[in-house]
């Protein structure tokens, strides 16, 4: 299958062969190529440099460039090389965690990191408060500081089993096993239909025999 009317893949820094990425993830080669179609559209939306920067990520999430604490947090975890940009291999490996067939253990790990904003190995009360305040500012929910403190008291009395004021990895695993809906954000059913959502990958494929 030839490649035509598209920017050469060598112009995408961090581009990795779909066969190699498929072997490291739960995605098939075709699915990796379909993800490349999505990656191309996001990475070329503001600066056509073959990488996704924070602004492009926010634009893809919200259709606007508004800054958002939660989107920033996801972006930082996708940006594993800490360069302020996401390359194609980062993108595929990070989305892999969100695949419906990935073991819960990996999803629990990722979600723990999501909430452990300062990377101390603990989810601390001040981090959770900061996120609650950010949530209120993006929604129409209005809660008094007293109510926020009550919610934090209740949450930490449930989750922080040893009552040391912070949630460690084992406490988090225990807490989400009792509250499985908290992991809903960690699974994207879209990833099962990615080749249907981006069928144009077939025209841009660089792999001779597409394995589905």
């Amino acid at each position: 299958m030839g490649c035509f009317h598209s920017k050469p893949r060598r112009q995408y820094p961090g581009y990795e062969d779909p066969i190699s990425l498929a072997s490291q993830t739960t995605f098939s080669v075709s699915e990796v190529e379909a993800l490349f179609e999505l990656f191309k559209s996001i990475s070329g939306s503001v600066i056509d440099d073959g990488l996704i920067n924070k602004e492009e990520f926010q634009l893809a999430l919200f259709k606007s460039k508004k800054d958002n604490l939660f989107a920033n947090r996801i972006f930082d975890l996708f940006d594993v090389k800490k360069r302020g940009v996401i390359d194609f291999a980062d993108f595929v490996r990070a989305l892999n965690v969100f695949h419906p067939s990935i073991p819960m253990e990996e999803k629990i790990d990722f979600s723990f990191k999501l909430y452990d904003m300062d990377n101390t190995g603990f989810i601390e009360r001040n981090e959770v408060k900061q996120m609650l305040v950010a949530l209120l500012s993006e929604s129409e929910m209005r809660l008094s500081d007293e109510t926020i403190e009550t919610i934090l008291d209740k949450t930490f009395s449930d989750a922080d089993v040893n009552q040391d004021g912070k949630i460690d990895r084992a406490e988090w695993e225990n807490f989400v096993s009792r509250n499985p809906s908290l992991l809903k954000i960690m699974t994207l059913p879209y990833l099962k239909d990615i080749t249907t959502t981006f069928p144009s990958f077939v025209f841009h494929s660089e792999v001779d025999d597409i394995v589905t």
Partner: peptide
């Protein structure tokens, strides 16, 4: 509702955590 007293259940409602939006054309 018990969920309204769970800070993480509230936080996970943020649109910033909804990566499904990346797939909406």
């Amino acid at each position: 509702k018990p969920e309204s007293m769970n800070a993480f259940a509230l936080i996970s409602r943020s649109q910033g955590f909804n990566l499904g939006n990346l797939f909406e054309k």
